[in-house]
């Protein structure tokens, strides 16, 4: 871990809630200092804490897959990326989308189904995307992003850009055939992709030991992809491993694979809260909470100040998001096609 004296690093200014409205104006989050990284982890933690509350109160329709506990992975990986790089994300995507620099106010508006949300209220939690930041979408299908990442990386490379694509996925995706196919495609094309496996121990309720034959890094090694396992509760350990893989990919050295051992403090999704499942013991949860990635970084940064900043930011973001209009029901079919006649309505008018 890189320690810097407390109080000397205030990092970059926090984004202003709702200020960035139009696509193309966004810039990726600056995560270059420990304070930046702590601030982003705090933002993700508090964002999802608020989102959990909004699911409970009904401000967020449906539910979410909270990222709480895994913050060091998104922040460590995104800290290793450059401004032109891209990511693919997962059903548990709020952390990745925020760490890449998406406006938290617009992400909140998206989760609340508002017209000014990141996706104009058309995607919600599982499809949050900001293409202007290189976010090729959260994804509702486990393992689906990896091959999209390989194609995007190949396209960038053949047009002469040195773009790297980071593809996040969980341990559950290790058993999706298309992910293994994607590893192979990346290997044979030497595509500049960093595969990031967030191993949080469970595919919904199924423990890794009961689901994964061999290992995560063993799968990568079988395709000739250099792979490492790091402590996913340590943002700097993740960042250092990601930086190495990103640098190799950028200099035409081919794809890399980083397995991050992490844990979600909350259930798989918000429905689990009502179900009182017992697949994880309270002791196990407590043991992982004791290794909290924010607490690890806290002594090195002006934490109290940052915490207050983030709280104020989220308060403004929440107020703004809830004041934004909902989409017009007459526009339910908008954005389906880039061109051509509008689809027929369900009932002729």
């Amino acid at each position: 871990m890189t320690a810097e004296p407390a109080g000397t690093d205030r990092g970059t200014a926090a984004p202003v809630a709702g200020a960035r409205r139009a696509a193309g104006e966004a810039t990726p989050a600056d995560l270059s200092t420990p304070a930046d990284r702590y601030r982003m982890m705090r933002l993700i933690r508090e964002f999802d804490t608020l989102a959990l509350e909004w699911v409970r109160t009904g401000e967020i329709p449906g539910g979410i897959h909270p990222y709480i506990g895994q913050e060091a992975v998104a922040v460590g990986v995104c800290a290793a990326l450059g401004p032109g790089d891209r990511i693919t994300s997962t059903h548990r995507g709020h952390g990745h989308v925020l760490a890449r620099g998406a406006d938290p106010a617009r992400l909140l508006a998206e989760l609340a189904g508002r017209e000014s949300g990141l996706n104009r209220g058309r995607g919600g939690s599982m499809h949050a995307a900001d293409l202007s930041l290189g976010i090729l979408g959260a994804n509702g299908i486990v393992g689906a992003g990896a091959a999209i990442a390989v194609g995007a990386a190949w396209a960038a490379r053949r047009s002469g850009r040195d773009t790297v694509v980071a593809s996040f996925f969980g341990d559950g995706a290790l058993n999706q055939g298309v992910l293994l196919e994607a590893l192979n495609l990346a290997s044979i094309h030497r595509a500049p992709v960093v595969f990031v496996c967030e191993n949080n121990g469970y595919a919904t309720t199924l423990p890794v030991a009961a689901a994964v034959g061999g290992s995560a890094v063993g799968r990568a090694a079988a395709f000739g992809i250099p792979a490492v396992t790091v402590d996913g509760m340590d943002a700097d350990a993740v960042r250092e491993a990601a930086e190495e893989a990103v640098a190799r990919a950028r200099s035409c050295g081919g794809p890399g694979f980083v397995e991050c051992l992490t844990y979600r403090y909350e259930g798989h999704h918000t429905m689990e809260r009502r179900m009182r499942l017992t697949y994880r013991s309270p002791e196990e949860v407590a043991a992982w909470r004791a290794r909290d990635p924010l607490e690890r970084l806290r002594p090195a940064v002006p934490a109290a100040e940052i915490d207050a900043e983030v709280a104020a930011l989220l308060e403004r973001a929440a107020a703004w998001a809830l004041s934004e209009p909902r989409p017009d029901p007459a526009e339910a079919g908008a954005y389906l096609y880039a061109g051509g006649p509008p689809p027929r309505p369900g009932v002729p008018v």
Binding site: A146, A147, V150, G151, W154, A182
Partner: peptide, 12 residues
């Protein structure tokens, strides 16, 4: 994989 590879290339 190559169908989604094409999607990734189409998006970029």
């Amino acid at each position: 994989a190559f169908t989604s590879f094409a999607l990734g290339a189409a998006l970029t």
